[in-house]
Nucleic acid binder design. Structure first.
Length: 305
DNA sequence: AATAGTCTCAACCGCAGTATC
DNA sequence: GGATACTGCGGTTGAGACTAT
């Protein structure tokens, strides 16, 4: 396929970073395509004639295709994807072009691992909205719904499987709040230069708790009490802005002052804090399941992140 | 080194909502 | 108002990379 080179003045950064495109294949020669999916493709692209359908490409995009799409959108703008697909010379559906642009080629799309901030935000927002990936993605600039969805499936659901808990269950949500969110706060704290002078009580508590949780199964409540009393007796003014108190069968994080902490200086987090959601404000009423080794599992799962 | 199992993530699919004719 | 086209969303798939045996 001969494709005009992109404008000399236009060098898209993603082209420099993109993976070596996998071998591309044309629809009629693709052994991986089932008859059903070919039919589906034909049905989907109902506006195309038979010959066009036979030439429609699927599968990974090549560098040339990427360049062509970028070049076309640079000149004509995005949107009207079906006509774009036809006019650009790409043998792709409009849907495919749109997806490639929005998820990968668009200049403001971030690539690379999610930051602790972003991971925290995803956990928070998913607790609030569930699998509303696009809505969640709106609060993470540069991240796509697809990326967030993949993150959830590969990282979060993996943890759920590991724990043998349904990731949609209340128990799992509680586990997230109980263990992950504090850990994420800790990570955010470490990763945020602006908050480097802060010492989170949660962090202190966790440093104290973690080995105990790992080494002494079944003593969770006592540990909690111990930690709680430390926290309370010290009368700490939580520099992190939230209070953590641990009671015999409950674990309570007060986010009343949450807006003072580093992480919540981000607009998205401020929105969360100001919302009616009290995501960090939870009571653990069923503590025994944690003491049955769940905590161990959680605390040992940093390696998975 | 070979093989099997697992993980990641780009891409696809079906569907629903909206726009246009 | 109905038909058709377009767009966007969430769920799913599968190729390639990675890891364990």
């Amino acid at each position: 396929m001969h494709i005009k080179p992109p404008l000399s003045s236009f060098i898209h950064p993603i082209i420099l970073n993109t993976k070596e495109p996998s071998k591309a294949y044309f629809l009629p020669f693709c052994p991986l395509l089932s008859l059903a999916s070919m039919r589906a493709t034909k049905k989907m692209a109902s506006s195309c004639n038979e010959q066009e359908l036979d030439e429609l490409r699927r599968g990974p995009w090549t560098l040339d295709e990427d360049n062509l799409l970028i070049h076309y959108i640079t000149c004509h703008g995005e949107g009207r994807w079906n006509s774009l697909a036809k006019s650009s010379g790409l043998k792709r559906t409009g849907k495919s072009c749109r997806l490639r642009w929005l998820n990968y080629l668009k200049p403001d799309v971030k690539h690379g691992n999610l930051t602790p901030h972003e991971q925290l935000l995803i956990l928070e927002l998913h607790s609030k909205w569930g699998n509303r990936w696009s809505k969640i993605a709106q609060h993470l600039p540069g991240r796509t719904d697809n990326e967030i969805k993949n993150y959830w499936r590969t990282k979060v659901q993996k943890q759920a499987r590991h724990l043998k808990i349904d990731s949609n269950s209340k128990r799992f949500v509680e586990a997230l709040r109980q263990f992950w969110l504090p850990r994420m706060f800790e990570k955010v704290d470490h990763s945020s230069p602006s908050s480097s002078t802060c010492t989170s009580t949660m962090e202190v508590d966790q440093k104290n708790q973690s080995p105990q949780l790992q080494d002494h199964k079944g003593n969770m409540v006592d540990n909690m009490n111990s930690s709680s009393s430390n926290s309370e007796s010290s009368g700490l003014n939580l520099p992190y802005g939230y209070e953590s108190s641990l009671h015999s069968h409950s674990y309570y994080v007060d986010c009343n002052n949450f807006d003072k902490i580093g992480v919540s200086q981000q607009p998205e987090m401020q929105e969360l804090v100001s919302s009616d959601m009290s995501i960090l404000d939870f009571q653990l009423t069923d503590a025994e399941w944690i003491s049955n080794g769940l905590a161990d599992t959680f605390w040992n799962m940093d390696q998975l992140w």
